[in-house]
Design a protein around this nucleic acid. Sequence first.
DNA 1: AGCCTGACTCGGA
DNA 2: CTCCGAGCCAGGC
Length: 113
Amino acid sequence: MTSHSGPFAAIWALVRRIPAGRVMTYGQIATLLGSPRGARAVGYAMFFSDAADVPWHRVINARGEISLGGHVDRPAVQREMLAAEGVDFDANGKVDLGKYLWRPSLADVTGDP
DNA sequence: AGCCTGACTCGGA
DNA sequence: CTCCGAGCCAGGC
């Protein structure tokens, strides 16, 4: 499926605005979209999204870790993609959110370049 | 409508 | 800081 329309369009639009070398948490995205507890739905949207259109690998959980659950190949791929963008992982395989967490401004959320 | 599952989050121990 | 349990929201059947 291509990410151009649907209930997840807002999520994809926001994820697409995440600059390289930065990451965002599911809860943060959900909060910006108006659903502070809809973090799970965000994860679903990532699964149904296309990596070519949506950098889903820049979306991680609030602990700064990659959480996928059922799938096994995705976490390794996600870690490599983030590392290729300059995101460093600690010995525990976690990302320093205080350093790499992207804090979008109002213009970024509204879609104004 | 109700029920189940889930790439989550928070609070407490 | 890590582990456990409970909770809220959204999607699919």
